[in-house]
């Protein structure tokens, strides 16, 4: 008994404060939020539980479904864009471009700017006027003879959400580049030499030696970008404002519901967002856990 206490006591004591804090302020509040989403809470006044009514209302609401669709498109575009540019830049730097230090800083720098600050600038850059009254990017396109590329950016009903992904990609690609660069640098030179000794072509070297070594990096890049993307809010608020229809995502819908005083609906949207993020992160954690155990 005493022995057990000796063995388990100190670790439990060490872990307890953070376990309690996370238990109360993360998991406890998730529980309270879920509980609120089952009521008809309007501005703190509630008459009781209504079951899953808030959820069924949301899923039959066209605007909310549109916001989910926007979120899916945004996430895919954001992921594809950052992974593509991040990998490309890391690969170029890895190949030994001159002035690596400068490029690394230049590409990483946008990440230092907050989404709100850059959003204010992008709001102007992504002005939807075309033709004579164009400004921002549309004007720039016109000046370099690419006038046919002018478009209404984020005010387009179908593809507007892509325009929001542009600044997001611009800001986060550098970070993904840094991750990949670290991944490249972590691959021992001997492995490459060994592969070359065995007569592997450059493509085969990448295909069978480098890429497998980079896959954990790619996976964490996907998780990091993915969960950031699912929570996108500040960028949209700064560029398009809270009520603009074409850039609605669940987070802005939640803010609108909260502002209207529909706390239960806002809580339901919050729960849905949490589930969407969980769908992305939980398989990764399970995979990691299994991998650790199998070793």
């Amino acid at each position: 008994m005493r022995n057990k206490l000796h063995r388990w006591g100190p670790p439990i004591l060490l872990i307890a404060p953070s376990a309690v804090l996370i238990g109360v302020f993360v998991y406890g509040l998730i529980g309270v939020n879920f509980n609120t989403s089952l009521t008809d809470n309007i501005r703190g006044q509630t008459t009781g539980y209504v079951g899953l009514e808030n959820y069924t209302t949301l899923f039959s609401d066209d605007t909310f479904m549109y916001s989910l669709r926007n979120l899916a498109i945004y996430t895919l575009a954001f992921l594809a864009g950052t992974l593509f540019f991040g990998f490309l830049w890391a690969w170029l730097l890895e190949r030994g471009v001159r002035g690596e230090g400068i490029f690394r800083t230049v590409y990483l720098f946008p990440m230092a700017v907050s989404f709100v600050a850059s959003g204010v600038v992008w709001r102007w850059l992504l002005n939807s006027n075309t033709g004579d009254s164009a400004s921002g990017l549309n004007r720039g396109l016109d000046m370099i003879g690419l006038g046919f590329l002018q478009n209404s950016w984020w005010t387009d009903e179908t593809w507007g959400i892509f325009a929001i992904a542009v600044p997001a990609i611009w800001q986060l690609s550098g970070y993904i580049m840094a991750l990949f660069l670290a991944g490249f640098r972590g691959i021992p030179e001997e492995l490459r030499e060994a592969a070359r000794m065995d007569g592997a072509s450059e493509w085969k070297l990448y295909r069978h030696v480098i890429f497998p070594q980079l896959s954990p990096v790619a996976l964490s890049a996907i998780i990091i970008i993915g969960h950031m993307s699912l929570k996108v809010f500040d960028l949209i608020m700064a560029i398009a404002g809270q009520t603009n229809y074409t850039t609605q995502v669940p987070a802005t819908q939640m803010w609108i519901a909260f502002t209207r005083g529909e706390y239960s609906v806002a809580a339901a949207i919050g729960t849905i967002m949490l589930l969407v993020v969980a769908v992305m992160i939980v398989p990764y954690l399970v995979h990691n856990y299994r991998a650790e155990r199998n070793r």
Binding site: G183, M228, K231
Partner: peptide, 19 residues
Amino acid sequence: MRRTQAIAALAVVGLTLSA
């Protein structure tokens, strides 16, 4: 291998918490 994965996992957890 194991270390990179652990670092990646840590990065994810850290980001989630900071967010």
